[in-house]
Structures are given as structure tokens and as C-alpha cells.
Amino acid sequence: MPDRDVVLLETVKTHRARLVSAFVFGELTERRLVNNNVKRLIGGVIVAAILCAVCGGFSFVTSHLGRQADQERVQQGMGPATGPVLAADAFDRDEPRGWGESDRGGRWTVAGAPEAYRVTSGAAVINSSDRPRGGHLAAVQHDRTDVTTTVRPTSVLTDGSLTVIVDGRRVSAEQGYHTVVQLTPGGGIAVSLVRTSTSQLQGERQRQISTTVTMPGSDDQGDEPTPVAIRTQVLGTNPTTIRAKAWPASGAEPKEWTVLGSDSTPDLQRPGSVGVRCSASADEGHAIDLAVDDLVVREAP
């Protein structure tokens, strides 16, 4: 037989626990509802946290990949030049002899007689000959240059050609990396890269280090010469990377480089200056001079 006293005590204990629970948490049906709502709330918070983590992770990955792609494009020279300016000249002055002082980058040093050069009407002019003439900025000494300039013949080419040489790294008069752009009748363009060296280990003094890419001109050129934009980069040492592009200045800059090259000639693995030169072919029956409308030199990425 059960002990009545024990049963009574247990019953009282149970009733007391139920009374306390009812007083603190409410009736049993309400407690069940609250428990269910709490479970739903906790579940919703967990799901929201997971979704936030997934979204945050996706955003981080896409942002990182985007920055990485931007860095790769910069390293490959894609897009416009954006590096710090090392030198610049808009040639907004008059100089009857020589090219004078640049807007930024020091004084121009010209090859040969100053009478073969002048600055007028917003352009630096070179009286062309069959031998290269031009100027360079000796104060600019760098091993990562990004040079942009616009050039044009002073009159329409009818035969022969005008050769423009942009010195991306001029170590000396006989040492450097150059972008050679040949301007032909009808607005035609031929682009190549050349290195010039005095090193006895490299064989010939001058050597082409890229293919030649030709863009033919038009049969209907008109009465005005075609301005051509040129951009060249000379990057680093051992090896040095050289790349260039040329396009009609009236159009947008192409994304891709026209020519690419690499070289490790020992005497060229150091900083150099920048400059512009030109020469005319003997086929041209009258003198065709070159006008350099502007020049900007930036530090390449």
C-alpha cells in the first residue's frame, strides 16, 4: 500500500511547481506558444546569419577578383595612362631656334643646329632630313616610362615617308629603346620596336626587337595631314619590356598594344631619358617637316 503521507507531499510539491510556473510563465498553452515563437526566432536569426555570411563572402570574393583584374589590366598597360607625370609639354610658346624649356621636365636638348627646330602655333617642329633629328629631356631619368605624344607631317605626304622615333629610354645618343613609326601617304602607319646598343656582345649596333605591324592608309586622304597618336612604355630591367601602339589621333586609343618586345642588352639595363626624333625618306621630292603637338611622360605601372 502506498504511503499516504508521501503521496500527499508529492502532490503538494507538484501543485506548487505548477503554480509557480503559471505565475512566472503564464498558462501552459501560452508557454507552448512562446516556446514555439522563440524557436522560430532563433531559427530565423540563424538563417539570416548564414545568408549574411554567404552574401558577404560572395561580395568579398567578387570585389577581390575585380581588384585583381584591375591590377592585371594596369600591369598590362590596358586603358589610358594614369601614372604620376614625370614630364609634359604642350608647346604653347614661340621659340624661333630650338625647343626651349618644357612645361615640366626641364630644357629640351636638340641634336645638331638649333636652326633646324622651332616652336610655333602649339607645336614643336623638326626640319626633317635623311638623318634623324630631334630633341630629348635629359633631366628625366627613369627606368619605367609611359610616353604619349601626337605627331603630324606639316603637309600631306604624296610619296616617300616620314619616320618618327619615340625614345622611351635614351641612355645615350647611341644607346636606347625606341618606337619607330613610319608615316606613309594616305595616313598609313607602320610600327616596330628597335634597340640601339654599343655593347660588343650584342652583335649589330641596331636591332629590331618586334615584328612590324602595318596599317594601310586611304586613297582619299584629303588636303590635311593626318595626326597620329603614339604611346610607348619601357618597363624595368633584366629583362626590359617594351610595348607601343599608334593610331589616328582623331579616334579612340586602342585597348591592345600594337607591338611588344623584350630585351636584356646589358648596357641598356638602367634609367634613361625620353625624346622624339624624325627622318624623311629620300623619295620625298620636297621637305616635309614633323610637328609634335604635345608630349606627356608618366611613370609606368
Score class of each variant (00 low, 15 high):
301 P>M: 09
142 H>C: 12
201 L>T: 13
86 L>E: 03
269 Q>W: 06
294 D>M: 03
223 D>M: 11
218 S>K: 10
287 A>S: 10
195 R>L: 11
275 G>Q: 00
119 V>Q: 04
188 G>R: 03
234 V>W: 06
15 H>L: 13
148 T>Y: 00
257 W>Q: 08
183 L>W: 04
268 L>P: 06
49 A>D: 12
79 G>E: 00
189 I>W: 06
1 M>E: 07
28 L>M: 01
128 S>V: 12
22 A>I: 02
192 S>Q: 12
37 N>W: 00
217 G>F: 08
132 P>E: 06
295 L>Q: 00
60 F>E: 06
150 T>I: 08
51 L>R: 09
139 A>K: 07
250 S>T: 15
49 A>L: 14
152 R>Q: 15
222 G>W: 10
188 G>V: 03
201 L>V: 10
263 D>S: 12
11 T>V: 08
95 E>D: 06
52 C>I: 15
180 V>E: 07
81 A>C: 02
126 I>L: 14
41 L>V: 12
83 G>R: 07
135 G>C: 05
186 G>E: 07
32 R>F: 01
97 R>H: 14
268 L>Y: 08
217 G>E: 02
291 A>I: 04
213 V>A: 13
16 R>H: 09
273 S>A: 15
80 P>V: 13
183 L>D: 01
294 D>P: 05
239 P>R: 10
150 T>H: 00
180 V>T: 09
85 V>D: 01
197 S>M: 01
189 I>C: 01
263 D>I: 01
31 R>G: 01
45 V>W: 13
91 F>R: 02
